[in-house]
């Protein structure tokens, strides 16, 4: 009966030997990491304010202004970012009193802008919209080239200091409307 006991064991050894010799499961393996970057772009503009058509002389403060006198002031905007942008700008005149500042409403009644640029659209919402997209490194045409203070301003506010402010805004052209007036303007994204 001893040979009967050994038979299964020999069979198992045989299977084991067969697997070891012919049934190897070995193979080669290698790994390779790839470092993949996703990046975002940005928009950027610069508001330039000059006192002469060549752009060489920056605009400075005006003192002792006279009514109905034309002062050279040439503001324009440069796209200093990598992406094309829509542009809009808003003008405001702030009257500085001793105790408070107040914005003067109805600006057109008190100042006159000389030679407003033909690409600038004066909208009813108080903004000037630049009609075409501004590519990277391009500049707008001047928003205007001169400013005149009407007599009504001097009469109503004698010996007063004013701050004339131009706020310029940019938003992306991509995925954002077909013109600046139907684009989405928010401080946070499109």
């Amino acid at each position: 009966m001893r040979h009967r006991t050994k038979a299964p064991a020999l069979l198992l050894f045989g299977i084991l030997l067969f697997l070891t010799m012919t049934g190897s499961v070995a193979y080669f393996v290698t790994t390779q990491p790839t470092h993949n970057l996703i990046t975002t772009s940005s928009v950027g503009i610069a508001l330039l304010d000059r006192a002469d058509p060549t752009g060489a002389v920056p605009f400075n403060s005006l003192e002792n202004i006279n009514p109905n006198t034309l002062y050279s002031k040439i503001p324009y905007i440069e796209n200093v970012g990598p992406e094309p942008v829509w542009i809009r700008a808003r003008l405001s005149l702030i009257r500085r009193d001793e105790d408070r500042d107040a914005e003067i409403p109805d600006l057109a009644s008190f100042i006159e802008l000389g030679e407003p640029g033909t690409h600038w659209l004066n909208s009813e919402d108080g903004f000037y919209y630049y009609a075409s997209a501004l590519a990277s490194s391009e500049t707008t045409e001047p928003l205007f080239t001169s400013i005149t203070f009407r007599e009504t301003l001097i009469e109503l506010y004698p010996n007063t200091e004013f701050t004339f402010t131009i706020d310029a805004y940019a938003t992306q052209v991509k995925n954002n409307g077909t013109s600046p007036t139907n684009a989405t303007w928010t401080e946070e994204g499109v």
Partner: peptide, 26 residues
């Protein structure tokens, strides 16, 4: 990228590491 992606994510980058593993057989 969502349309309302906030301004603070402009000029930003993020790295995604992918690892390819290859087994070679004879």
């Amino acid at each position: 990228a969502p349309a309302n992606l906030k301004n603070r994510y402009s000029d930003t980058s993020g790295e995604i590491v992918w690892v390819f593993t290859t087994e070679a057989y004879k």
